[in-house]
């Protein structure tokens, strides 16, 4: 048999509660993350992702409690990201029950942090989360640039080159989010996903823009991602994780259907 493609529901968590925004604005409160995690576990999710978008430092500790409570109930892999800036942050998340942490802004600000984290905890638990937008014009060769601060701040850094650098520094996996697609339901940026997936030696997770189940199929088949991440289609019940996995299997992708 073979390694199966993963379906990863992602929960945006703010102050200990689940929210999901459309292109990172207009956040809607929609539930308890631990209850959602249990439901996804039962539905056969291959992995779960929490993205902590808590702005105030006063409430930063809420995520540790959410992770700890989730780990008590869910025996599935858990990735946690958002505001991970120090080795101490990573250690706290791992001790709370996270299996992997995703590093975003801190990787852009200081690529050496990724190397330090990978050295300390192993490449396998360091995911680098790359938020980018397509900046090339119609007719030009495709080019993507890294954006930080929820997609508001351009950095001038080329996304493909950055992805390669992050793998050199020790990222064990890359989470690629297309900020112009995120929340738009028009599908992943397949060219971005495939360009990076074909260049790096580590697994790539496609993210940003899923509106239907064909988009998940495209992420793996055309984007060469080894995992697909989605939030709102699962969170608002448009499709179940089980439906998504069966649909992908019916379209020729090796899936875990235990």
């Amino acid at each position: 048999m073979t390694l199966k493609a993963r379906v990863i529901p992602c929960l945006d968590v703010k102050d200990g509660r689940v929210v999901k925004g459309v292109s990172f604005v207009n956040l809607v409160d929609a539930g308890d993350p631990v209850e959602s995690a249990k439901a996804y576990d039962a539905a056969g999710a291959d992995e779960l992702c929490f993205l902590d978008i808590t702005a105030s430092s006063d409430n930063r500790d809420t995520i540790f409690d959410v992770v700890a409570r989730t780990a008590e109930h869910c025996f599935m892999p858990l990735t946690v990201g958002g505001g991970v800036r120090t080795v101490a942050d990573i250690r706290k998340l791992l001790l709370a029950g996270a299996d992997k942490v995703s590093i975003n802004s801190a990787a852009v600000a200081n690529p050496d942090f990724v190397a330090e984290a990978a050295d300390k905890f192993g490449n396998q638990c360091i995911v680098v989360s790359i938020d980018s937008k397509k900046v090339s014009q119609e007719g030009e060769e495709d080019r993507w640039e890294i954006f930080t601060h929820g997609g508001r701040k351009p950095t001038g850094i080329d996304a493909v080159a950055f992805a390669e650098t992050m793998v050199e520094r020790g990222a064990g996996e890359l989470l690629l989010t297309s900020m112009d697609r995120d929340g738009q339901k028009g599908g992943y940026d397949i060219a971005l996903t495939r360009t990076i997936a074909d260049r790096v030696s580590v697994p790539v997770i496609a993210s940003g823009g899923v509106g239907n189940l064909d988009h998940l199929v495209e992420g793996v088949r055309d984007g060469h991602a080894t995992a697909v991440l989605a939030a709102s289609i699962f969170h608002f019940g448009t499709y179940t994780v089980g439906e998504a996995k069966r649909y992908m299997a019916d379209h020729g992708i090796a899936m875990r259907l235990d």
Binding site: M1, L3, K4, E47, V202, P203, H224, A227
Partner: peptide, 14 residues
């Protein structure tokens, strides 16, 4: 050569 390192995910056992 298309298989990534690390192997991350679900696989069956022989």
């Amino acid at each position: 050569p298309t298989l990534k390192i690390p192997q991350i995910g679900w696989n069956t056992l022989d």
